[in-house]
Design a protein around this nucleic acid. Structure first.
Lengths: 182, 182
DNA sequence: CGCGCGTATTCCTAACAGGAACAGTACGCT
DNA sequence: AGCGTACTGTTCCTGTTAGGAATACGCGCG
């Protein structure tokens, strides 16, 4: 009897697993959001704050995470750790679930589709802007990649980062080539 | 005073513009869904039926589309056409709005992040499965591309399709290379 | 004629985004 | 010491989106 969770739930569980490798105390919702912003957003979405807290609530009810009140300092916050049940659920998911195809929401491609409704210079400058944005993104991801180094413990995250970098490179190349055909 | 619409709204308006080039009668919500499934889903999401109808309702209230009852045949359906106001709104959007960065929801990359929690063979077979799915997708998009041909009227959609094909190729290459490093 | 499939629409529910609101904490500046 | 500001931490609200179930008509086929 496995409780059904959303992919985003499992993504958060994953973050908590990685945290548990180096820390006993667990993470607050706020900290979880920061980690998601740093890494998850490149390959998935970084969930809204509101969603993180509701997700933690749900995971907590299912027994996959446990929230402990932290009274260090006057202010009380809740720190969440993954439970063994949570670990099991996560690995079960990794083993069994259908992997579905990536979803792309590509506003630039969508606009290009209607390129005939735009002026000729406009399409070009849109694509140029996109190439710039890609370079920026690449730089951000590069910083993450360097942080990972060649540490064996984070070999998989490093591979994913490399994947992302290669993707940005190829995307930039495709768009530049495309721009020249206009 | 431009009414604020979602990107998906504009995507639907775009479909209606293209339709209006070849037909007077307009499209039903159902037909709109089919067109979205055929083309939009590669670069954006194909909205759920429920969303298409609510979107049409909203667009209709804003005066960007007009719905006409169609009594040909015994059954009454509503067919929607874009209005001149709708056209204006769409081109305004193409001209002025911020273009934001694509959003990728990549379940495979997400799983690979947690590769250390999976068995060694599992990661490989996951990637293999993905490469296969990519090939299938590519074939579907190729069919769309061939439909477009080198017709000047759909030059932009053809370019977007080419972009998509190049993306699938590069993605497959990256993943295959990645798989070899495991 | 009855069955199944494609067409067409509506409704319901849960997930999700985004931001406002609120409050405590830390730190530097004067 | 007091003040402002930025960061941390959580909750709430509203609207949007996803997904699927439910309904119903039409058409063609055995």
């Amino acid at each position: 009897m496995t409780t059904q969770l959303s992919t985003t739930s499992y993504a958060l569980l994953g973050l908590l697993v990685f945290d548990s490798a180096t820390s006993q105390t667990g993470l607050t919702g706020y900290e979880l959001k920061q980690r998601a912003d740093r890494t998850l957003r490149f390959y998935w979405v970084s969930p809204a704050m509101s969603q993180i807290y509701t997700e933690l609530e749900r995971l907590s009810r299912s027994g996959f995470v446990e929230g402990v009140d932290d009274n260090a300092g006057k202010r009380t916050t809740r720190r969440f750790r993954i439970t063994t049940a949570g670990r099991t659920s996560l690995t079960d998911w990794l083993h069994t679930s259908e992997q579905d195809f990536p979803i792309l929401k590509h506003p630039i491609a969508l606009r290009l589709l209607m390129g005939s409704l735009m002026g000729p210079g406009e399409v070009e400058s849109m694509l140029d802007g996109y190439v710039e944005a890609l370079a920026e993104r690449r730089k951000e991801l590069e910083a993450v990649r360097e942080l990972l180094g060649d540490n064996e413990a984070v070999a998989y995250p490093a591979r994913v980062a490399d994947w992302g970098l290669a993707y940005y490179d190829s995307e930039a190349e495709i768009v530049e080539k495309l721009r020249r055909t206009l």
